Simulated scan of single mutants.
Amino acid sequence: MTHKMSICLIVLQFCFLLLLDQTEAKVSAVIVFGDSSVDAGNNDYIHTIGRSNFPPYGRDFYGGKPTGRFCNGRLSTDFISEAFGIKPVIPAYLDPAYTIKDFATGVTFASAGTGLDNVTSDLVSVIPFWKEIEYFKEYKKKLTIFMGAYKTNVLLREAFYILSIGTNDFLENYYQVPTRSSHYTVDEYENFLLGLMSNFVWDIYKLGARKIALTSFTAFGCLPLVRTENFLEGRACNEDYNKVARELNVKLNTLIIKLNKELKGIKVVYSGVYDTLVDAIQKPSSYGFENVANGCCGTGLFETSILCNKWDSKTCKDASKYIFWDSIHYSEKMNKVVSDHAMKTAFVPFL
């Protein structure tokens, strides 16, 4: 073999290895689990009052369509899918307008009102978290029929999994219903929830998942609904609630380190939304926001779901000036802020 041929072979091998690295980094699909922060309309197809498939929800979505997203437009996961170059909208698994071909590049199993704790989902009769995992198993079977076992395994290995859940466990469950708070201290309940999150990662790992983002607990003490309840302090953020969120996030980081050590070939990342929200609240003009305490819909103090409706004349005209769309959920613009931050930080290893 000549010297020139040896050099050519080395260059070819280098290019091949580089191509492999690019292939491994490519995300084949975005698969989503969680609550209303990432539900694209699954609740439209179950018997529950926890819906948003009516105006003014979706007024800034494509065609002004209320899809069941708890937002005036797209969710953070829609923007994330678009940023990965896949598609601009992630469909709900229960939406009959889509097929397994559509779901092959992205799907959400999320259900508004649900939580890690089964008791949470029972409160408003929504899809329990364990059922979301069952849907994922069903999805894998459908994929296998659609594209074969080998391609399915490759797709699921290269897919990006996002979990956004937990706020309802405290706001709807622990602080409102005595069942859990009478049996668990806050610290014990935090550990209980994180144990369920750990089980989730193990479950989807066994089903083929390798690239996973666990979304941090947000500053739920600053949600408009919580601020409205905090009237004795002039509707300030509830710092006791925010303290719980921060404690959970410290424990979540520890859990992520543990999972990355225990599970071979996995990459679990921490997607920190807490700091993003707090920064936007403290420096709204930096993001183009004007209102940080109210939702756009209605008075912005307590409206969500059926209380946020087209008959309320108080709904704002420009949701892009608001961090929150209703009293709990982000506006489309805030969802874009959250997704942009995640793509520039936590999700860089998957680009």
Rank of each mutant, 00 (worst) to 15 (best):
S164A: 08
I145Y: 11
S125K: 15
I127K: 06
F170A: 03
A149Y: 00
N173P: 02
E134M: 14
S198C: 01
K131R: 15
N199H: 12
L123C: 10
N153M: 05
N153I: 00
F192V: 05
S182D: 12
Y189F: 14
I127Q: 04
Y184S: 11
I133D: 04
D169T: 03
Y184H: 14
V177R: 03
R157Y: 06
E158V: 00
Y205T: 02
I133L: 12
S164N: 08
D187I: 09
M147K: 06
K141Q: 12
S182R: 11
S182G: 01
S198N: 12
D169K: 09
D187T: 14
F129Y: 12
S198F: 00
T167Y: 02
T144F: 01
F136Q: 07
K140V: 11
R157A: 09
E132K: 06
Y189R: 07
T152G: 01
P128Y: 07
N191P: 11
L194V: 01
Y161T: 06
V177I: 11
K131P: 12
R157W: 02
H183V: 00
N173L: 05
N173S: 08
K141N: 13
K131H: 15
I162Y: 07
P128M: 10
I165L: 15
W130H: 15
F160C: 05
I162R: 03
S198K: 13
Q176C: 07
K151T: 00
K151C: 00
Y139E: 10
I204V: 05
A159N: 05
I133V: 14
G195N: 09
F170R: 06
N168H: 05
K142R: 15
N168C: 06
T152V: 02
A149L: 04
F136R: 09
K151L: 02
Y161P: 05
S164Q: 05
I127F: 07
V201E: 02
M197F: 04
S198M: 06
I127E: 04
E134K: 15
L143V: 04
W130G: 13
A149I: 00
I204M: 04
A149R: 08
M147S: 05
L163K: 07
D187N: 14
D187H: 13
Y135I: 04
Y139N: 07
G195I: 00
K137T: 10
V154M: 07
M147E: 07
L143A: 02
Y174E: 05
K137C: 10
L171T: 09
I165S: 06
Y161D: 06
P128N: 11
E188T: 00
F170L: 08
E172S: 15
L193R: 06
T167M: 09
E134N: 15
D203Y: 10
E190M: 15
N173R: 03
M197H: 03
K131C: 10
V124A: 11
E190D: 14
G166Y: 10
F136W: 12
Y184D: 12
F160L: 13
E138F: 11
L163G: 04
F200Y: 05
K131S: 13
K151E: 04
N173M: 05
